Simulated scan of single mutants.
Amino acid sequence: MKQRKLGRTGLEVTEICLGTMTWGVQNTEADAHEQIDYALDAGINFMDTAEVYAIPSSPDTYGKTETYIGSWFKKTGKRDKFILASKISGGGTNWIREGRRPDRQSVREAVEGSLKRLQTDYIDLYQVHYASRGHYHFGTAWKYAPENQDTADVLDNIADTLQGLDDMVREGKIRHVGLSNETAWGIGQWLNLAEQGGLPRVASVQNEYSLIQRVFDLDLAELSHHEDVGLLAYSSLASGVLTGKYLGGQVPPGTRATVQPGGLWRNNDYSAPAVQAYIDLAARHGLDIAQMAIAFALSRPFMTAVIIGATTMEQLKTDIAAADLTLSDQVISEINAIYRAYPRPL
């Protein structure tokens, strides 16, 4: 398994990261432990979670995924085998600290809660899950309104949150800092304020990236290149939409659509023809569509790691094996032609 640098941290992470958000709803604790075992045997050293997981989130599932990881650490004694990433909620969820956005105090509360569930004394990469000021992620791009933001309030909140993250770094509870579901301007502000105040530097950003969601190709890619803030890509299969299993209105039993009705915003009349085009391309070249999609994401110059999530061991094995696939120039050319035809099908 190839490894790549995690920003300027000095850490090297495997290009496939084990995603965990289904653990606690679609997957049991035993399933979670089996997936971790397999990933470790496959050479993966990177695992990502969040305080809000499992997804779909609820008061009953809050923290379950971290708890499952913690029980694996306790059972195996192999905490040192993984570079572990987790996240603080970006706010707005009433059962998480009454919906408060991250600030200096809530960072401490969140980190210490996660450490207890994870049964560890440190988190390698601690990320802010999403921008509390509003953003264009999670299917909200068509309602994005940055003109409504209060610049001074945004910057004050980032600075305060950075102070909380710095507290945790100094106490050894987290090692490095990352962002998730951020914009180019937002990342720039985190970087500037960290440099001005001698505070922890952002190492990475975890945003969505797939064949049908390539916003990162633009300003974010430029920032990533110049500032060494690599992408940790999630939903590279568009929550399974790219496999074609939802085409024609299908909802196969046991899929995410059965546990999160209305949550698959990537599956719509605009995305369907693009998905079909990518499936047809894969078939012409004898490729598995899931592996082609992951391999394409891995080929991008700004990519640090692709986070894969699976509800079955068969899916997990297929997705991890994508790391061994190198797409030909012809396949890349055909992908780009489809992208030109369907640049934003969401």
Rank of each mutant, 00 (worst) to 15 (best):
V202I: 12
Q206F: 04
D156N: 14
V251P: 00
A110G: 10
Y246M: 03
E12H: 12
G91N: 08
T14M: 04
A257C: 01
S86L: 11
T61Y: 04
T61V: 14
L242D: 06
L84C: 10
T120K: 05
L220W: 03
L118H: 05
E109D: 15
R170T: 12
T67R: 09
P200E: 05
I307S: 03
A141P: 00
A257E: 01
T49P: 06
E51W: 05
L242T: 06
I158R: 04
L193C: 05
V229Y: 00
Q213A: 13
E109G: 00
F138Q: 10
V251H: 01
Q206H: 10
L316C: 07
K245D: 01
K78S: 10
A297I: 11
Y126K: 03
D324G: 04
A152G: 01
G188A: 13
L193N: 08
H137Y: 12
L325C: 03
Y62I: 13
S86D: 15
S328R: 06
S180L: 02
Y53L: 07
E51Y: 04
Y342T: 10
V25I: 10
A321C: 04
F296S: 02
L162Y: 12
V107A: 01
G139I: 10
M21Y: 13
S239C: 05
D324K: 14
T93N: 03
G198Y: 10
N94W: 07
M47R: 00
T22D: 04
G286W: 02
M21R: 02
E12R: 13
T312L: 01
R266S: 02
K2G: 01
H135D: 15
H33C: 08
D103I: 11
S58G: 12
T255C: 00
A30I: 14
R133Q: 13
M292T: 09
G70I: 14
L179F: 01
I174V: 15
I16N: 01
E227W: 04
Y68P: 02
G263F: 08
M47P: 01
E29P: 03
A110T: 12
K245S: 01
N94F: 11
G134A: 08
L179M: 11
R300V: 13
G10F: 11
R170D: 09
T243F: 01
R284A: 05
R133E: 15
Y144S: 03
N207Y: 04
S328W: 08
G248K: 02
D228G: 00
R117I: 11
V251W: 00
D167P: 06
R133M: 10
A277W: 02
W265A: 04
Y342D: 08
T140W: 03
L115F: 12
V202Y: 00
E334L: 12
G134S: 07
H285R: 05
S299T: 09
A152I: 13
S86M: 09
A238P: 08
D153W: 11
Y278I: 03
T312G: 00
Q206A: 07
D219Q: 14
F216I: 08
S210C: 06
A221Q: 10
G178Q: 06
N192S: 14
D156K: 15
G240E: 09
P252G: 01
I88R: 00
F302G: 00
R344E: 13
A257H: 00
Y209A: 03
R101D: 09
Y53T: 11
D153E: 15
E147C: 00
D228M: 04
I212F: 03
L327V: 11
Q260K: 04
Q250S: 07
W23R: 04
H33Q: 13
G254V: 03
Q127C: 13
G178F: 09
